[in-house]
Deep mutational scan, measured.
Amino acid sequence: MFKRLMMVALLVIAPLSAATAADQTNPYKLMDEAAQKTFDRLKNEQPQIRANPDYLRTIVDQELLPYVQVKYAGALVLGQYYKSATPAQREAYFAAFREYLKQAYGQALAMYHGQTYQIAPEQPLGDKTIVPIRVTIIDPNGRPPVRLDFQWRKNSQTGNWQAYDMIAEGVSMITTKQNEWGTLLRTKGIDGLTAQLKSISQQKITLEEKK
């Protein structure tokens, strides 16, 4: 169930391209415009997507990853294993993690069937560096609404905000991946996880038929 919630949630996290980005210092504006741009692209490019579902990787690479804190999220997933990894191991892992996100997020976007969304009203940021933004996803086919909290983090150097995690039903996506990959990290280390991520990233994206 959580895996499905995570995939549905990713439908609204794909941010804007650099040329049309919203105010990078306001995570609420980023979330709002990102959702609108993403849904528009999914709707307008269905012919290309249906002809070649792996085209979704391109959308992810162009529109999402430049505005997601990939390395920060990847380091959180590694936890204690990050500090013990060599620079070469980290570089290989982050490259594999990025390719994994292209496949995983692309597969999530393949679930698009006309969903709509509501974003919580903007709250004062103050001096906060981590801000959760509640998004409610509404399914046109009558499924119950899904309420999610996207975690946005302020870059201490640039002042810009980027998304790095999502919490559904009190469970963090980062925590879920830590639990899912924990045994592999304990037995085969970061190299074993890197190899698995490379394998997963090679899987073809498949479209979910409308139910």
Rank of each mutant, 00 (worst) to 15 (best):
A163I: 06
L56D: 03
A110Q: 13
K71I: 01
L30S: 08
P144L: 12
R90D: 05
T116Q: 15
I49N: 11
P140R: 14
R147P: 02
A108M: 14
I49L: 15
T176I: 05
L193P: 10
D127A: 10
T206A: 11
Q69Y: 01
K198F: 07
A96V: 14
A92R: 10
W161H: 04
K188W: 04
Y105T: 00
G126P: 06
T116N: 15
D32R: 07
I49F: 12
M31L: 05
L109S: 14
A21T: 11
V171F: 04
I59T: 06
A104P: 11
A96E: 12
Y112K: 01
E33S: 04
K128F: 13
M1Y: 00
Y105R: 00
N155S: 03
A108I: 06
G142Q: 07
L148M: 13
L10G: 01
M111F: 14
P121T: 06
L109R: 01
L185Q: 15
Y82F: 08
E208N: 15
L184I: 09
D191M: 06
V60M: 12
M6P: 00
W152E: 00
K29M: 13
I200D: 08
Q46G: 08
R50W: 09
Q196C: 15
M111T: 10
V8P: 00
P121S: 12
L185C: 13
M7N: 01
M6A: 02
F94P: 04
N141W: 06
S84V: 10
Q162M: 08
A88K: 06
K43N: 09
E45A: 09
E122G: 11
V77G: 15
Y55M: 07
I130P: 01
Y28E: 13
T176E: 00
R50K: 12
P145W: 11
Q123E: 05
P53H: 09
F150W: 13
P27D: 00
L42I: 15
P27W: 01
Q107R: 05
E45D: 10
M1W: 00
A163T: 12
D149L: 04
K29W: 10
E209Q: 08
R50N: 11
I205K: 03
T183I: 07
R57Q: 08
V60N: 03
K128I: 11
R41T: 06
R98Q: 13
I190D: 02
T136C: 08
P87M: 09
T194Q: 15
Q103F: 13
D40K: 08
A88G: 11
L207S: 09
Q115W: 01
A73R: 00
K188N: 12
E45N: 05
A92G: 06
P53V: 07
S156T: 09
R153H: 03
Q24T: 11
Q80F: 08
D149G: 02
D139W: 07
L11Y: 03
L10Q: 00
E33C: 04
E169D: 07
W181P: 00
G126T: 10
R57M: 15
K43L: 09
S172D: 04
K102W: 12
R50G: 12
K198W: 13
W152N: 03
A92T: 11
A95F: 07
Q178P: 04
A108W: 02
K83M: 05
K102H: 08
A73H: 03
